[in-house]
Design a protein around this nucleic acid. Structure first.
Lengths: 202, 202
DNA sequence: TGTTTATACGGAACGTAGATCCGCTTGTCA
DNA sequence: TGACAAGCGGATCTACGTTCCGTATAAACA
């Protein structure tokens, strides 16, 4: 939705033409930032991100005027990736299995967001839109998975997608980085819960 | 364990003699820090705390080598105050009422701790002991209140104190600063839940 | 292909905040 | 009251976010 190819504005708004190197750099910065955030936390110095990306700090700040803008951009990217995964998994697996796989992916997403919990409650305007972005992307994605599983009679239909997102988000958030096994078992438990009573709902 | 000067062990313990002004300053710093934390968040500059306390930064750092040590100290103080309140309220109110009053006080405590949520998950050693401190102080305090209410037949006995702490903590944490009314009603709901079935448990 | 120019780049420089250092002050004890 | 350890404060060092501006270059044009 943003990579408007170069020459397509033949007439009206010919003010674009993002230079190729700029585009490339923005991408690199986001990749590097993501990796450094997960390695050192969201507090890594901008300078480090810049150096590791092979650019100067000026370049980072031109694209992301505030540090928090960069953090928010990485966040959105990861939401997108997780949503995309929901689509992929839905195409390649049975509904019930797809649900399990996606929940696990989702807990991994949440686990890396622990450092942002405070930021989301902060007043920084860069983060203001993130909760909405989160919900308006994840809710439909999960709804699609649930609908598919409900349609095949595997789960019941009286659980709201958003409530599930919160519940699983909560349990993934509450545990340390070692919680993988715990998380998987909780996810299974939740899906069992969804399966319970599946028959009487159809 | 480190500054054992030679002459101060006349026999066993004579290692005290905290100078009066030092004691006074430490107290002032903690008071001021608490008030500034709640006004501006835990990110207020140490300089500001020092100035407002009428001391130099050096004085603050002598007592609290790291910024986070100060934050942790204020946290412990507030835990203590909240626990003390449990004792007070238990002496001056009927068990059921005491429970309500204390839960409200507790939600207020939690609400001011939103900024620390991330810190508690951080690796800063100053915060490492806080979760244990939290639990080992709050759990017995709440247990006493619950026991009293159970003894008078007002509530049932099958709810673990720590689970209650987490549940109420969770709801207080999840809401914005405007959540007072919501929180009170949720607390009432929880206590009603405790009252439910009180009779068959005795 | 050569010229022009809007875009983008890098990193020096600035302001602020945490943390340290050390010469000066003061409470305490005899 | 005098001596001195305990305590004080703020100048100073370091690190980080952010800004600025001279230089480099991709892209448009000839």
């Amino acid at each position: 939705m943003r990579g408007n190819s170069v020459k397509e504005q033949t007439e009206k708004a010919a003010k674009k033409t993002v230079r190729a190197d700029a585009q490339r750099n923005e991408n690199t910065i986001l990749e590097v930032a993501k990796s450094l955030f997960s390695k050192y936390g969201v507090d890594v110095p901008v300078r480090k991100i810049a150096t590791e990306s092979g650019v100067g700090v000026g370049t980072v700040y031109r694209r992301f005027p505030k540090r928090s803008d960069l953090v928010a951009a990485v966040f959105r990217r990861e939401v997108d990736a997780c949503v995309r995964y929901a689509e992929t998994v839905q195409q390649n697996h049975q509904p019930g299995e797809a649900l399990t796989l996606w929940f696990i992916r989702y807990t991994e997403f949440i686990a890396t967001k622990r450092g942002l919990a405070a930021a989301l409650h902060s007043k920084d305007p860069a983060f203001a839109s993130l909760p909405i972005y989160f919900r308006s992307n994840f809710e439909p994605a999960l709804k699609a998975l649930l609908d598919a599983a409900a349609k095949s009679g595997e789960i019941r239909t009286d659980i709201a997608p958003y409530d599930l997102l919160r519940a699983i988000g909560g349990l993934a958030m509450a545990n340390g980085d070692d919680g993988t096994e715990y998380e998987h078992s909780m996810v299974k438990l939740m899906i069992d819960g969804l399966r319970f009573g599946a028959d009487q709902t159809r």
